[in-house]
Design a protein around this nucleic acid. Structure first.
Lengths: 196, 196
DNA sequence: TCAGATTCCGAACATGATGTCCATCAACCG
DNA sequence: CGGTTGATGGACATCATGTTCGGAATCTGA
């Protein structure tokens, strides 16, 4: 199972330093604007050393930030599911946790996904959320109409709406309290938009 | 009103050729992979000429594809709003149009927004759609509850959900007919997801 | 503690894309 | 037809990427 026998302290140090430098720089100037050389300077590490460990900036992010975020989210989800309450209140239970988590790390989130376009940048977050919604749909499918509506469409609908609202909320400075955004979102999702 | 007196045939030709070349290349290798020089080669136009008209690849896209898309969508919405029928049926009128348009140009859409990448292009489409939804909300705001729910949140909710479903649909090959996806989406949006 | 193995360093090199400038030439418009 | 405007392509400067390599630093295991 274990792929690594021993981990040389130097490589551990190097990798960790690079990851840390990346986060620092993301907060300072945003992900897109960062160059490999920037990271190396910030980390005081040779550029050739960088390429000995990672193939690119994206690679570094993948093997660091994404994994880290994924771990955090899974943990939150575990908590949310373990909490007591009605099914109605637990459904979409990850939403509140996510709003809170995002607010705690608002700078990082905004640098990563905020501003323009970044919706899809949060690829791994999106995937996790899809998994959560899928699981929830599967759990509740007993008393459901025959599926003229593909489940996956519902999943995409909910996750897309959620991420969109989340990013908007963060970009606006997260003024509304998480509980309130959570409540509004879930009402929109379960009862529809009050327009038509 | 008119900003342009006359349009030199040469500039019209150049611009048009460049736009066309961009689309060709997007279909051939995807937007991200395209370089300014690629475009110039494809169009048989000097690179210096390119920079005399556009400042970058993104600029070219903006002044071509985006404007075109925006015009088409506005037109579709105008039609939908002018059509007879219940308000409920007329709202979100751009949706069906967009599904149909996307299916007609499915190769282009998938190269633009599908799979991975697509961040940049989605950004502008997203903005266009936000404008449409905002306009619709503003038009219907008379018989609305006092806004405990920020309008912009609703906008983000709807547009995020829509784009997410659209991309999923396209990536799956657009198997369901546009009318059906449209109907499902609008039902989800107006009545909520049938889970909780 | 020490020796051999591994990693780090930095500088050099090759490559490829961006963006600017300019003199020359061709096309357009009135 | 003649003056104006746009097109051309090549030279330049710049910047980021990715690779290579020999010597120096550092780790690991005995």
């Amino acid at each position: 199972m274990g792929t690594e026998k021993t981990i040389d302290r130097r490589v551990a140090r190097t990798r960790s330093t690079l990851h840390h430098a990346l986060i620092t720089l993301i907060l300072r100037k945003g992900y897109e604007a960062i160059t490999v050389e920037d990271i190396c300077n910030e980390a005081n590490i040779g550029r050739s050393t960088f390429y000995a460990h990672f193939t690119s900036k994206d690679d570094l992010k993948r093997s660091g930030l994404d994994d880290h975020l994924r771990a955090m989210l899974v943990e939150r989800q575990r908590h949310a599911l373990a909490a007591p309450g009605e099914l109605k209140d637990r459904s979409l239970g990850f939403v509140l946790g996510m709003f809170e988590h995002a607010r705690e790390h608002i700078d990082l989130y905004r640098a990563l996904a905020g501003g323009r376009g970044g919706t899809i940048v949060l690829g791994s977050i999106r995937e996790i959320l899809c998994d959560l919604v899928r699981a929830e749909l599967a759990a509740n499918k007993d008393r459901k109409l025959p599926d003229v509506v593909p489940n996956e469409l519902i999943v995409q609908f909910v996750v897309g709406a959620f991420l969109s609202v989340l990013i908007w909320w963060l970009d606006g400075g997260a003024k509304l309290p998480p509980q309130q955004v959570d409540q509004i979102f879930r009402r929109l999702a379960t009862e529809g938009v009050p327009s038509a």
